[in-house]
Each structure stands twice: as structure tokens, then as C-alpha cells.
Amino acid sequence: MHELGIVFYIIRDVKKAALEHGVEHVNAVVMNIGEVSTVVPDYLTDCWRWAADKEDLLRGCELRCNMLPAVTTCNACGKEYPTVEHGRTCPYCGSEDTVLKCGNEVEIKEIEVL
């Protein structure tokens, strides 16, 4: 839904990191994307291609997405369960008092440079 906007944030952060490390060209950017982050990796890479090729630093640079599983913790029984499968209701005790432990990450993991 908002992948192009996210691409602009990635470009801004990668540019900053490249400047700090004195890098002139970035070959690849590796992202960690949580399963329930609402980011669609295919859209993200499409938007990336369009936007990255406009920048000297990033021309031809590949964007790779590592998907991270989403896990929810139940506050009632303390157990953890996979979020995508069960949503907000704990499959062990039926409680709705649950909190997302991980799975909404949109982070730049690393960049590869020559």
C-alpha cells in the first residue's frame, strides 16, 4: 500500500550510511521484513527498482527481503503462538489479551558494497 514511501525512507537511510562509510556505490541492500508489517515484498522491490535507478549511488543495486515470522504472546496463559495463523486470539486458552512479540519489522539489515 505504501511501498514507494518506504522505498524513499530506505534510500535516505542507505545514503546516510554510505556517506558515513565513504562508500561510492552500493551493490545490494538487505531488508528484514516482518510477516505482519503490511509491506508487500514484491511491491517493495518494484518500487525500489524505479526509485533506486535514479540515484548514482544505487544504480543497479539489488534489494533483498528477508521475511521474519510473526509471533504473538498471550498475556493470560503466557504461551507464544504464530500470529498469521491465529490472529489476536490465543489458540491455547482463547484469550484476546495478546500482544505482538515480533513480526512488524521494516528494517535495513545490511548493505553490500564493493
Binding site: I6, Y9, I10, R12, D13, V14, A17, H21, V23, N27, E105, V106, E107, I108, K109, E110, I111, E112, V113, L114
Partner: peptide
């Protein structure tokens, strides 16, 4: 991985600066 390719770890949420 290609020879000479260097990995720079960033590990930063893209929402961090905005927050």
C-alpha cells in the same frame, strides 16, 4: 558472495528517524 564485496551492518528500523 563475490570477491571484494564488503557487508556493512545497519540494523535500523526505517521508522526510527521519523519517531
Amino acid at each position: 558472495m563475490e570477491d571484494g564485496v564488503k557487508v556493512i551492518e545497519i540494523k535500523k528500523s526505517i521508522f526510527e528517524d521519523n519517531e
